[in-house]
Simulated scan of single mutants.
Amino acid sequence: MEFNLIATATFGLEAIVKREVEELGYPITETFNGGVLFKGGGEAIKKCNLYLRSADRVLICVNKFKAYSFEELFDNTYSIPWEDFIPNKATFPVVGKSIKSLLHSVPNCQKMVKKAIATRLGEYYKTNWIEETGPLYKIEVTLLKDEVILTIDTTGPGLHKRGYRNLTGYAPLKETLAAALVDLSYYSQDRFLYDPFCGTGTILIEAAMKVLNIPPGLNRSFVCETWENLGTGDFAKIREEGRDSILNEELNIFGSDVDGSQLSLARAHIENAGLEGKIHVQKLDVKEFKSSKKYGIIIANPPYGERMGSAESVQPLYKYMGGFYEEHPTWSCYFLTAYKDFEKVFGQKASRRRKLYNGKIECTYYQYLGPKPPMRKDVDNEGK
């Protein structure tokens, strides 16, 4: 069975998620704020959950329609062949949201959708009571300007839950956003990668996973694995293919932080991700960092002056990094920050900028592009 599928994305990451879905072999039919729409069957659902790095989750888009009254909402929902999606005795909670719609009461919308689905399934399975004791099929009703979108979540806990980060420090960066920062930098192992504010190591780990072709969802489960109507046995085969695709190469990835407790978490996360020996972290102030590498790249989520001190406290830090970049013209630097005057303090205009959100904080990703490194064999001969 082929479905209309949605890979949801944090604002600003839609183009990255689109590229990732296309690389898996599924053409995009529509890109919209918050995600991309494409077609695929059970295998597409499994592969996208397993391999997408920057998407938040994978949804089945059951239907779209206009509704200006609760009667229209009920009738249109009831007309959908829910028995094609939801088996007998399945658990199907309904959540929702409403934006700029006549039907603005979310609890009432949820109740109406639940009632319509239960009525339809009860008639199909010939029962007066839906016994919700089986697998979970979480349904969301979204109303935007009176258009209703009904979806079923195939992911469960969001795709940022890779499984390696069971411990978190302050101001954690989501794994999906970290993966996007790496993707936007076009980082490859031809360069030395450094994160001077590595915290619990998320950017470093996501960079290593990308280069080594480690599927981000390899060590976690998804709610759709419990769905018998999706062919659960194939997941083992797809996971095995994912393990077989992993590369075993030396990496030159280094991170530092001034907070030793954060580095302890980073080391634990690196071990959980199976990347011991691939990533190196050290307690170090960024001003003490030195490297003879000619071609390097910095990807960092430095302090913003919001969660960790005043805005004035980060200015010397940003100014120092600007000086480092000026002294290393063959390096590329990428900084995610909410500090509005970053370029002024850094001392240079960015080559590119992209608005992104770190949680609810509006940030800008400042991208300073250095020259491409020469062929790999020449890079290998650089000074260490």
Rank of each mutant, 00 (worst) to 15 (best):
C61V: 05
T8K: 12
R376Y: 10
V258A: 09
E249W: 06
E22W: 08
T200I: 05
L13C: 02
G296E: 01
K377Y: 14
P135E: 00
F32H: 13
L103D: 10
Y125Q: 00
L50A: 02
A350F: 02
S313W: 10
D153F: 04
P87W: 02
M209S: 11
F346N: 01
K115H: 05
E147I: 13
S292H: 07
T8N: 08
K138P: 14
L103E: 11
N381P: 00
F32D: 07
K340Y: 13
S105D: 15
M308Q: 06
K377A: 10
A207Y: 05
R120G: 05
S291P: 07
S264V: 14
L143S: 01
L284W: 01
L204N: 12
N166D: 15
G40S: 00
I253G: 03
S264Y: 10
L159K: 00
G370W: 00
K174S: 13
D190T: 07
G201I: 03
G12E: 07
A171R: 06
T151H: 01
R354F: 03
K97R: 15
E123F: 02
T91D: 08
H160Y: 15
C48L: 03
A338H: 09
R354N: 04
G42E: 11
F342A: 01
K145E: 15
A208H: 01
K89E: 10
M1R: 15
P329K: 06
Y334V: 02
E228H: 06
F65I: 12
S185L: 13
K278C: 13
Y124E: 13
N108D: 15
N76S: 15
F222S: 06
F11P: 01
K384E: 15
I299F: 14
A268Q: 10
K290G: 06
G34I: 11
E362R: 12
D378F: 14
L265M: 12
G122Y: 00
H269A: 14
F289R: 07
K377H: 13
Y125D: 03
C333W: 09
R354A: 07
K115T: 04
K89A: 02
I130Y: 06
R165T: 00
H328R: 14
G323F: 01
H160A: 11
L181P: 04
G347V: 02
V345F: 02
L247P: 03
K340H: 12
L136E: 14
Q262D: 03
E271C: 05
A350N: 05
V211S: 07
R352K: 14
N88F: 12
P316T: 13
Q189L: 04
T330W: 03
P172T: 08
Y194R: 08
L263A: 06
K114N: 08
K294E: 15
I86N: 03
R353N: 08
D56T: 15
G305K: 03
A236C: 08
S54C: 12
D195V: 08
E83P: 06
M308W: 03
G42V: 10
T142K: 12
W227C: 04
P329A: 09
L275N: 10
F11D: 00
M375D: 11
G383Q: 14
L204Y: 10
S221E: 08
T364H: 11
G260S: 15
T330H: 09
V94H: 05
I16K: 03
S101H: 10
N252M: 12
